[in-house]
Simulated assay, not measured.
Amino acid sequence: MSDRTSRTPSPSGPNRRRFLAAAGLTAAGAALAAVQSSAGAAPGRRSAAGAFRVPAEDVRHTRTWMAWPDSTAIWNRGTLAGIQADIALIARTIARHEPVVMCANSASAAKARSLCGTSVTVITSIPVDDCWMRDSGPVFRTDGAGGLDAVGLNFNGWGGKQAHGKDARVAERVAAYTGVPFRHADFVGEGGAIEQDGAGTLMATRSSLLNRNRNPGMPESELTAGMCDAYGASKVIWFDGVRGQDITDDHVDATSRFLAPGEALVQMPLPTDDDAYAEDARQQHRILTGSTTAQGGPMEVTRLQGPDYERIRSGHPDFLASYANYYLCNDAVICAHFSDSRADAAAKTLLARLYPGRVVEQLNIDRLGTGGGGIHCVTQQQPVP
């Protein structure tokens, strides 16, 4: 899950980003303690010192993993139907290009099948709390020789901000479903918090990962080593990020993405935007422009212009209007549009140029955007070994 807004966050309202139910926090605290005690010594742990690494997202996929939301404690009854409709739209669109497996609770599986249609496989063997598969799901790794395994990032509800008893086990259960070896990372985090180029370089925000709600007391050097170990990388490009203004503490995948080794993309704000997220995007662009890859090569950075929040359909103060939160699937790029016609068209044209040979499919997912997320946030790719 990711979150950006160029407006001042609303202090109230039924937004799942502020879901702080007492029972949920109690469960979150227990789960956090459990993963912190087990992360350093996961049973059956495999070393990442070999050839396994998380590949770039543009490789061929075996399937896309998603999760079906059904909690009226997280999404109120007036919001949930719209969120489910957006999730179904994303799933059906991806299913035109590669298989999609939707994890759903037994009580809501029929609804998921009805909305997603026969092109999406809905399973009930992996129960879920919410729809953010990017964060709760496993990170798959390949070895370039037909091998596949998976790493869990010890999801703890974005630092105990949301109930996650089921989601804390999604990563290991997906790995078991696919029949691949599984291990826990040596840190707590989420897939949307880390971007990889598939060749040894990562990028992330300190506000999200170097945070006492995920990794209390952990030095940056230790966290860097843990991330590189889990991802099969050797370098992390760090951004300061934005702390405490959204549930993710500023995930990187709504602003900056890797295009290829030595190539990155940053969604830029309007020159007149002066909020914390606009400054964060500018800083990410500056840092990336001056960075090198794990191999020491220069970084080429492409600017993707974000929309004008005065022109988009949604007027919700927490709305995420991120073109950069796109998802790559086999032969397609799935991204959002927001009704700023000029910016929407420019984003589509740029993505088509950056990913030649892939069709760019733009979707209206405004209900999901109002919940603080995007298309990349609710998907997790399983690469071909």
Results as ranks from 00 to 15, higher is better:
residue 40 G to R: 13
residue 234 S to P: 06
residue 44 G to C: 06
residue 368 L to S: 06
residue 328 L to K: 12
residue 301 V to D: 01
residue 202 L to R: 06
residue 92 R to E: 14
residue 267 Q to T: 06
residue 368 L to A: 08
residue 148 L to Y: 10
residue 340 D to G: 03
residue 217 G to F: 15
residue 173 R to P: 00
residue 151 V to T: 06
residue 163 A to S: 14
residue 344 D to R: 10
residue 308 D to Y: 03
residue 111 K to A: 14
residue 121 T to L: 09
residue 145 A to K: 13
residue 4 R to H: 07
residue 314 S to H: 09
residue 116 C to S: 12
residue 318 D to F: 01
residue 289 T to R: 14
residue 358 R to F: 09
residue 86 D to M: 08
residue 373 G to V: 01
residue 208 S to A: 13
residue 368 L to I: 07
residue 82 G to Q: 03
residue 212 R to M: 00
residue 197 D to F: 04
residue 329 C to D: 05
residue 201 T to G: 05
residue 288 L to R: 04
residue 158 W to P: 05
residue 166 K to T: 00
residue 243 R to T: 11
residue 185 A to R: 08
residue 275 D to Y: 03
residue 300 E to W: 09
residue 277 Y to L: 04
residue 72 T to K: 12
residue 378 V to R: 07
residue 204 A to V: 13
residue 381 Q to W: 05
residue 318 D to R: 04
residue 291 S to Y: 11
residue 371 G to C: 15
residue 33 A to L: 13
residue 378 V to M: 09
residue 134 R to Q: 09
residue 63 R to K: 14
residue 346 A to I: 08
residue 105 N to S: 07
residue 324 A to N: 09
residue 19 F to H: 13
residue 181 P to F: 02
residue 255 T to D: 03
residue 223 L to S: 03
residue 74 I to A: 04
residue 169 R to S: 11
residue 70 D to G: 14
residue 6 S to K: 02
residue 294 A to Q: 15
residue 62 T to G: 04
residue 128 V to D: 07
residue 102 M to P: 01
residue 141 R to D: 04
residue 81 A to P: 01
residue 28 A to T: 05
residue 140 F to P: 01
residue 125 S to G: 07
residue 372 G to M: 10
residue 250 D to S: 14
residue 60 R to V: 14
residue 53 R to V: 10
residue 199 A to Y: 07
residue 126 I to P: 02
residue 54 V to A: 14
residue 211 N to R: 03
residue 42 A to L: 00
residue 90 I to P: 08
residue 205 T to P: 00
residue 86 D to F: 10
residue 254 A to D: 08
residue 132 W to R: 10
residue 250 D to T: 12
residue 178 T to L: 15
residue 248 T to Y: 12
residue 258 F to E: 08
residue 270 L to K: 03
residue 347 A to V: 05
residue 369 G to W: 04
residue 155 F to G: 01
residue 256 S to H: 02
residue 126 I to D: 03
residue 224 T to W: 01
residue 187 F to E: 04
residue 107 A to I: 00
residue 210 L to G: 00
residue 111 K to G: 08
residue 336 A to N: 13
residue 39 A to C: 14
